[in-house]
Design a protein around this nucleic acid. Sequence first.
DNA 1: GGGGATTCGGAAACCGGTGTCATCGTTTGC
DNA 2: GCAAACGATGACACCGGTTTCCGAATCCCC
Lengths: 345, 345
Amino acid sequence: MAGERKRDQQPTINDVARIAGVSKKTVSRVINRSPLLNKDTRERVESVIARLAYVPNPQARALALRRNFLIGLLHDNPNAQMVLSFQEGVLEAIRETEFALIVRPVDRHSPSMLDDVRTFLERQRLFGVLILPPISENDELAELCRELGCGYVRMGSAKLDDDAHLVESNDRQAVGNAIDYLVEQGHRRIALIAGPDGFRSAQERRKGFHEAMARHQLDCGPELVAQGNYTFETGLAAAERLLEVSPRPTAIFASNDEMAAGALHAARQREIDVPRDLSLVGFDDTAIAAHIWPPMTTVRWPILSMARSAALKLIYPAEAEKQPSKFLSDLVRRASVTSPSGKSG
Amino acid sequence: MAGERKRDQQPTINDVARIAGVSKKTVSRVINRSPLLNKDTRERVESVIARLAYVPNPQARALALRRNFLIGLLHDNPNAQMVLSFQEGVLEAIRETEFALIVRPVDRHSPSMLDDVRTFLERQRLFGVLILPPISENDELAELCRELGCGYVRMGSAKLDDDAHLVESNDRQAVGNAIDYLVEQGHRRIALIAGPDGFRSAQERRKGFHEAMARHQLDCGPELVAQGNYTFETGLAAAERLLEVSPRPTAIFASNDEMAAGALHAARQREIDVPRDLSLVGFDDTAIAAHIWPPMTTVRWPILSMARSAALKLIYPAEAEKQPSKFLSDLVRRASVTSPSGKSG
DNA sequence: GGGGATTCGGAAACCGGTGTCATCGTTTGC
DNA sequence: GCAAACGATGACACCGGTTTCCGAATCCCC
């Protein structure tokens, strides 16, 4: 009976050691896969661990190791679907591990943002953090992680960091593909609703647009480019201007779905039929894109794969470089794009 | 120099005790606001704490107290916006506390769901969990929390639990208000797209619909009720049937926004103009509702307030009953509802 | 078979807090 | 004036792991 524990008590390393007839240290070595261990001993301990369904106490490990088995997710994001999808991908990657995910929205505009994050990281002693765009573009934040010895992986639309600390969506190329598709459909006069200058994603998407237009030797002068700040309203306003241009563009590429939805709204107000009189392409494949009428053609990040890769890079830093860093987005073809009505190619 | 610590080391309770000339225990008492403390001593210790910028190590506390200062968020939710909004509300409530938020999606359909959650709770020794609908309706889950001595607060559309463990949105009344509004606008023939039977939210919304229709002495026979399972496609299918009914309903209330968006789609396919020929009301006020055309009238949960209240109930169980438990949703009036075209009242 | 290197396992300290209980000085009660 | 009660504080064990240090056992080689 001396070997039994009270009910409702989880077994500890001491129970395992006592029952297996070895020391705590030996059990600890088994848990941590120390190579210098007698095979027989290891197997004996492992069988006891399995029999007791022993699991090391994360709090105790965290205290002793001065490091928590928690991964932080730092985000400052208007796109709820993306944040949740990313969470899902991370959780799938860490399901069988001892890690857990702790979420932390940060306020990009707060002057104390860096201090807040510092306090958070120091307090929680996180194993590492995953940083989502757009806050991932903040280099000071990455520098802070390095300074604190906290692992990190950034997710972004550009080469923000080295491959061990980055998963990158190639937005420039993705936009290029979207424009290629519009050109294939026969569009020649294509307008852009660009995103806010401050975001790398917006810059990359803009570059992708201009590169593709140049490749096809199409005009994309300033009258065909308007700017928004990723919101429905600014997309609407931008489209209002673009739809006044003469000759009117037959297609608009908006740098995100919300602005594309705004553009759709603007077209509708002018009784311009989408897609008959105007084709529209968005970016992000948010829930809106599929559920408006007409369903919108848009660019989708392979976000689950990116999240998984980011989590694995963080957890296994030694093999971080082996995890893919570059991801190419898919073009999701829906009804908002057709050949232009007049002179289709 | 003996009193100095190495750089990059955070001060510990021992440092505070040594410098203040008291024992660890006394410092611990100060931290935990023990009432039996000499005022002078307390102030002396507090000044040292402030000077050193000492913060207790959460891992050590977690180990000693056998309880982590982490709040889990359990969800199984198709509505990303709601989950993130809830997170936001919780984080606002715990901003100044030592708590952190850890997110855990659960799979409602997995046979091992309860075991998964049990393992999670036992491992992480959470302070408590907040449970979002629809998984919040699972009584076994709540029972599990009680059994493990883990605090919990459920969020739901019905009286699922006592006030200390519940924040409740009165969906029945909210739907009633929405129907009242339609009736005020002159609608008499109003159809319902109900949600899946398994969800309390769906049941409550259905009840709210029937009660309100009865109150106004309006017909709501089975031909005016269709069922979906909260998805765009099922909403579309349900509306297709309802729009065949003769005389055609002049308004449809859908039990969530996605199904309302599906209904809008169905109407558009039949060239039934919304809102001229058909008014539509949704529920949840997701991002979709505001960004489709026409913008959709819908019911909005006061989700930030609910999240805040839930978090406070969890953190301060002694005062849990004082936090509001019942919340009434707002009707967000948008362009998808007008008076019926023919014989408006 | 002996000496030295290597491997293994145990005792004890440690991570940084909290709980239990004893102690000390003071006040109260009679 | 002395015992009992009480308030404030401290010594020490403990939470459940990891790490350090060290001694013992094994292995290798000559």
